[in-house]
Amino acid sequence: MAIADLTISPFHRRALPLHPGCACARHKETNMKTMHLAVAVAGASGQLGSLVVNELASQCAGHPGTTLAAITRTPERHAAWQAQGIDVRWGDFDQPQGLAAAFHGVGRLLLISTNVIDGTGRRIAQHQHAIEAARQAGVVHIVYTSFLQPEDGKRSLLNDDHRATEALLAASGIAHTILRNAFYQDLLLAVLGAAAVDGQLRTAMGAGHVSYVAREDCAHAAAAALADGYSGNRILDITGPASLDAPALAAIAARLFGKPVEVVHLDMDARARHFITSGMPAPMAQMLAGIERWLATDAMHIVSDDYRVLTGRQASPVPAFLHAHRQQLLAPALPPA
C-alpha cells in the first residue's frame, strides 16, 4: 500500500464504534482531506520510529507532494532525513505546550508509546499530552503502538499504561488504530546468548508461551496502518506466527548452535541474580526477571493473523530472526581471534 493511496480500507478486524461526535459522513470527508495533510511519526528517533520513517520515506519517494513529518526531541540528529525532504520537527511529550504546533497540518499520526515504565503515571501523562495536542491540531487519525492485552487477571505494569492510553483514545473523539504489539524477538538475544556459552536456557517463564514478533514487522504494520486510509476505530494484535514456550526455544537454539540446550527453570529471584552475574544492571535484571515470571501465567500466548491481513506479508518466525543474528548470539561462545 503506497502512502499516497489514502483510500478507506475494508479491513476492520475488531472495529470499534465511532465516538458519538464523529459521524461517518464526517470521517469520509476528512479522509479525503488527509490526502493533502502530512503523515507524521511521533517518537521518530527511537528504533521503531526510525524504521517506520525510513519505510514511509521510500513510499513517498514515488509520490511528489506527499508530506512526511518526523517528530522528535532531537531534530538536530536527522540532517539526512531533512535532505530527503522529510519535515523534521521538534516535539517532546513532557512539554505539551509545544506539541500542538508540532502536529500542525498532520492528518494521520503514529503515536509511539514512550519507554517510561516506572509505575509513576508519567507515561500515561505523556500520552495524554500527545492525544490532547493531536485533538487541538485537528489530527484525523491516530495509530498507537500498544501492547498485547491478556485476559483479566493476568495484568501487569507493562499492560496498565497501555490500557489507560487506549481509554484516553476512546474518549478523545479522534478515530484511531491500536496496534497491540507482542514482545520483540530482540529480547531473545539476551535470553539465548548465555545458552550459546553453556548449553543452558535459564528462565523464570515456567510453562508460559510467547508469540514473539520482529520489530521490523511492527514497523511494517505501523506504516501500513498509516497509509491505508482507514477512518474508523480498530484494534489489531501484531504477533509472530507461533507461540513458543521454553522447550521450543531451546530446540530452536540447539539447532542453531549445533549442540544440546537444556531448559533450567528458576524462580524470579534466582533469575535476577543470574542476569546480574552476567553483567546486567540490577534494576533491569529485576524487571526482566519479573517479566519472565509474569509470562509463566501464559499471558502472552496470543497468536493473530492481523499482521498478514493488514500488510499482505507473513510475520517473520523466530528461527529466521535468530539465524540472522547467529553470529551475535555465538560471539560470547567463540574463542578470541
Rank of each mutant, 00 (worst) to 15 (best):
A207R: 15
H36S: 14
K28E: 13
R135V: 00
G121S: 03
M1A: 11
G107P: 07
D186C: 02
A331I: 08
H19F: 00
P241Y: 05
L192E: 08
H162Y: 01
A285K: 12
H323T: 15
H27A: 11
L188N: 10
V197N: 11
Q286N: 14
Q128T: 14
G206C: 05
A15L: 02
I3E: 07
L249I: 10
Q126S: 08
H176L: 01
F275T: 04
D160W: 09
R180N: 08
D306C: 01
A102Q: 08
D217V: 00
R271C: 12
T74S: 13
L256P: 03
T311M: 01
V139P: 00
H209T: 13
C60Q: 15
H129N: 15
Y184R: 14
A61N: 11
D92M: 02
H36F: 09
I276N: 02
A270H: 09
L99F: 02
A248N: 07
S278T: 11
G98L: 00
Q200R: 15
H78E: 06
A248V: 08
M35R: 15
A333L: 04
I291E: 02
I86Y: 09
A44T: 04
A221S: 06
N54M: 10
D228A: 05
F183M: 14
S211A: 15
V263S: 05
V261S: 00
D306F: 01
L249Y: 11
H209Y: 06
S231A: 14
T30I: 03
L169S: 06
L37K: 15
D237Q: 09
G240K: 04
A315M: 01
A57R: 15
L6W: 12
W294M: 04
A133G: 07
A134N: 00
D92H: 03
G153W: 11
P20L: 02
L244K: 08
D161P: 12
A164F: 07
H129R: 06
L330M: 13
A251P: 07
T239R: 01
G46A: 06
A42N: 12
D160K: 10
A251S: 13
V53L: 00
I8S: 08
R108T: 07
L179D: 01
R13I: 10
W90M: 08
A282M: 08
S172P: 04
W294D: 11
L157Q: 13
F257E: 07
A222E: 10
R73H: 06
T239F: 06
I235L: 09
W81D: 07
F103E: 02
A221T: 07
Y307I: 00
G21E: 10
A253P: 04
V39C: 10
A102S: 10
Q95P: 02
A79W: 00
V197E: 10
F183T: 10
Q328C: 01
S243E: 00
T145I: 12
M205D: 07
A227L: 05
L158I: 14
A254S: 12
F11V: 13
L109E: 03
P247L: 00
G153L: 10
R255M: 04
A251N: 13
R326L: 10
I276A: 04
G85W: 05
R108Y: 05
V264M: 05
L6I: 14
A101T: 13
A222M: 09
E292H: 10
